[in-house]
Structure formats: structure tokens, C-alpha cells
Write a protein that binds this DNA or RNA. Structure first.
Lengths: 246, 246
DNA sequence: CGATGTGAAATGCTTCACAGCA
DNA sequence: TGCTGTGAAGCATTTCACATCG
């Protein structure tokens, strides 16, 4: 109750921070490619459109990686963030539902990042099964169990229609998948210990609708965060960006 | 500035609540179709996988729509939520970038909801321009300005590669779009007063990676883990559950 | 009696402000 | 001197607990 540290010397990391880490990661990678050797919290904050104090607090939760008077070593900080995120691990991903969305996901930049490897693609449509999509051939959903014999997938992406989502999820968990990323607009039930996240277009649209009706006067937060951030543009922290991430 | 009420007698609605409203909306619509006349905060909370006190607090921010001892009238509450969300308005949506992702979005359930109407689709690829996608024919991005002459789009969806996202965003804002939903994995800059939200697959994957590395030790081969009382299920913009299907 | 609506407490996150180190 | 790292203040959100009312 009192101690805020886990087994290592690292503090518990708030969800809000975890969501920002990939943003920093991406910016640092870009700065690294641009040959920028060190970054100040101010610069990083400007590029990520957040408060500099927040950047420092976020990073300090991972450890003390900066140099006073100088800033953070770009490459080193990137490394530490990736370490914290665990993207140095191998995370086999299974995608179920190879419609337009599934294809978009498989071909997206998200998967080309280190760590995330397409382990297999599944669908029930005979017209789709057997097709080459991205790096893999689509398999019949009925053969899902066969995958388990080969390897343990870490992440299951559900890109099926809502009606099939729960059943698919159950099957994924059945072969040992410990985390589910759900794109179907429906609430899923998973056993305790299984991670579950949602990405939902219609919620995004409705939230925008809400703020649009209140635009003239509203002043919601202007944070950058995937999925559930909203806001009027932040008070433009300082200046523009040298090399914005592509 | 000081009072916590806006022009009507309704309190300022926290972002966190706004994100949950669409979830309640979906559940209520489903319950309505199933013929359930009234809902208690407890039932609604169960279906939305949140705390009942939170449901009551959320709903009380919109007004006092419940009946003590009974609960909320399903149809009436649904109506009030949709009113608050502003989905009764007409929100013309422009989608730019009609690749797999754009197609998936256009055909998704999100757009069939009331209020969101595809105003136009744009792409630069000559092979795509002219194609019928969903309810509209894809136009050449070069003709974007022509749209402005016809009508003012409210929401711009950016589904292009990262490299084009900022330029596309600028053009959308140029024709009067006041809110941008960005699917490209890049930080965008918009003028103050323009709403901006991000949906980013690679961030989702990295967040999962983070939690996966901290999940209690993996269950040994074969055995179903007895699992601890509360699993880490990081907060997500929840979904609803249709009445009963598996 | 049962379920809402809501002050007040608890928790969590953000921002401030500055000591301290390179 | 410049910039990090961080206690403490300031806000926001969640949860509690119960008066209140149909």
C-alpha cells in the first residue's frame, strides 16, 4: 500500500504513461535517423505535443537516463524505452478475420515494428482461405488448434464481425493466447489474467460528435494519446518541430 | 469560468464520461431491441463492465433521468444519451485514403450509425479513383476543393500513409473541416479549435507488449492457470455486449 | 423496499517549482 | 549555467456511502 516499487527498482508505471511511451519511442527513432544525438525533455515534449514536465516524469519512472544540463542521449533513451515496452521480445501475433480491416492491419506499419511477428492468419471464408496476405497464407479457422502445436501466440487480433468475436476470442484463449486486441464493436468477456483492449471506430466518431456540438466554447484536454485522446488543439507548446516523425 | 455548469443546467462532462456514453448507447439500443423496458445502473454497469456508481454518476451528469426504486426507462435514456452525444445532428464525413483501411472504415458499422454520413471519399491513386466504395465513388484528391463548394464536411478521416497525413490534414482544414480522426501513425499539427483524435495500431500493440512482459509468469504447458483474483485488464474504451449471444 | 442521485473521501494523473548535478 | 529528477500542490476521475424518493 505504501511502497510504489516492484521487484526491480522501477516504480509502477501508470497506464497513462504506458500509452505515451510508444509515442516517445517513435519520435526518438526518427530523431536518431536524423542524426540528433541528444534530446531535451522540452524538445521531446514539443514533438509529442505534451508538457515537458510530463515527459520528465514519464521517463523518470523508467529510471534516471538523462544528463543534467544536457538532456537525454537519443539512442540510449530509445533503447531504454523499448526495453521497458518489451518490444525486444518476440511477440507472435495471430489475426482472425481477414477482411479489409484484417488486411489493413497485416500490412500496416504497426507490424513492421520490431517484435511483432505475424504467426498466422485465420478466416472462415473459403474464398479467403489459402490467399497470401502480407507475409502469410490465410488458414482455415477450423485449423486454429494446429497452430498451438507449433507455437504459442502471444497476441490475438480479432477483426471479425461482432457476431463472431466472442467465439473467436474463446478459441484464441483456448490455444493459450494471453492478450486480445479487439476491433469488433462489442464487449468481450475474458478470464482474469488475459489482457483485453478495444479499438472502436464508432466510439471515436461519437466522441467527436459530442465535442463538435460544443466546439465554440469547449476546452477539453489536448493530449496526444492513441484511441481515447481528445481535444482542442493543445496550447501549442513553444514552437514547431525540426524533424517531425514522418 | 468558475461554475461547473454550462448554458443549460447540465454540468461539464468529463472526457472519461464522454468516452463511456457511446458504450451505454450501444447497450441501451440492444436492450431496447430485446424489449427490456427499464434498466438499473447495476445491469447497465454489468453489461458495460464498469462500476455501477460510475454509471449513475455518468448519467447524472446528463440530467436526472432515472426513477428511484425502478431504474431508467430504456428508450428514454437512449434518447437522452444520443441527444447529449449529438448524433441526432447530420455529420458529413470525408475519408481520405481508400486503401484497405479506408475501405474497412467506410464499410464498418461505425458509419451506419445515425448521423454519420459519407460525404465523399478521396484518393490520389488513379487505379482507385472512380471506384465505387460503399455508398460513394472515390474522387481524385486534386478535386478536394470542389467538395467545399457543395457542402461543409464536419469530420475528416485520414487513412493515408504517414508521409501524406499532415498535408492531407492541412487540406481538409483548408476546406473547413473542424475535426480530424487520424489513423496514420504520426503526430499531426492542427490549428487551435480543430479537434484531433488518433487511432494507432502500433501503439496498441506496444501497450500490450508492455503488459505482457509484466503478466504473472506464464502458465506451464498444458495446465490452465488457476489465475489470480484480478487480472490486469488495462482500461480500454469499453464496448457493450449484445444481450445474450455466446 | 429498492434504486437513484450526490456530497465527500479516495485514488490517480498532471503540473509546478526548485534542489541538485554535469 | 542548463536541464534533469522529484516532492508537493493542483486537478480530474473513481468509488463510497447514504439520504432521498417513487
Amino acid at each position: 500500500m505504501s511502497i510504489d516499487r516492484d521487484l526491480a527498482g522501477v516504480r509502477r508505471i501508470p497506464e497513462a504513461t504506458v500509452v505515451r511511451l510508444p509515442v516517445y519511442q517513435r519520435i526518438l527513432a526518427e530523431l536518431g535517423r536524423a542524426g540528433v544525438p541528444t534530446v531535451s525533455s522540452e524538445l521531446l515534449a514539443g514533438l509529442a505535443r505534451v508538457n515537458a514536465a510530463k515527459v520528465r516524469k514519464d521517463l523518470s519512472l523508467l529510471g534516471s537516463f538523462g544528463t543534467r544540463g544536457t538532456g537525454y542521449d537519443t539512442a540510449f533513451l530509445l533503447e531504454q524505452i523499448e526495453l521497458a515496452l518489451g518490444v525486444d521480445h518476440d511477440w507472435p501475433v495471430v489475426v482472425v478475420g481477414i477482411g479489409n480491416l484484417g488486411r489493413a492491419l497485416v500490412n500496416s506499419a504497426g507490424f513492421s515494428s520490431r517484435g511483432f511477428r505475424i504467426a498466422a492468419l485465420f478466416d472462415t471464408d473459403p474464398a479467403v482461405v489459402g490467399q497470401q496476405v502480407g507475409p502469410a497464407v490465410v488458414r482455415d479457422m477450423a485449423t486454429l488448434a494446429d497452430l498451438a502445436a507449433q507455437e504459442r501466440a502471444a497476441i490475438g487480433v480479432v477483426a471479425t464481425p461482432s457476431a463472431a468475436a466472442q467465439e473467436v476470442t474463446d478459441q484464441l484463449i483456448g490455444i493459450g493466447v494471453r492478450s486480445i486486441l479487439n476491433f469488433a464493436p462489442t464487449v468481450l468477456t475474458v478470464p482474469a489474467g488475459v489482457l483485453l483492449r478495444y479499438v472502436d471506430l464508432s466510439i471515436e466518431l461519437q466522441v467527436m460528435s459530442f465535442y463538435l456540438t460544443r466546439l465554440p466554447a469547449a476546452d477539453p484536454p489536448g493530449v496526444l494519446a492513441p484511441i481515447r485522446s481528445v481535444g482542442l488543439t493543445p496550447p501549442a507548446p513553444g514552437e514547431d518541430a525540426p524533424a517531425g516523425p514522418t
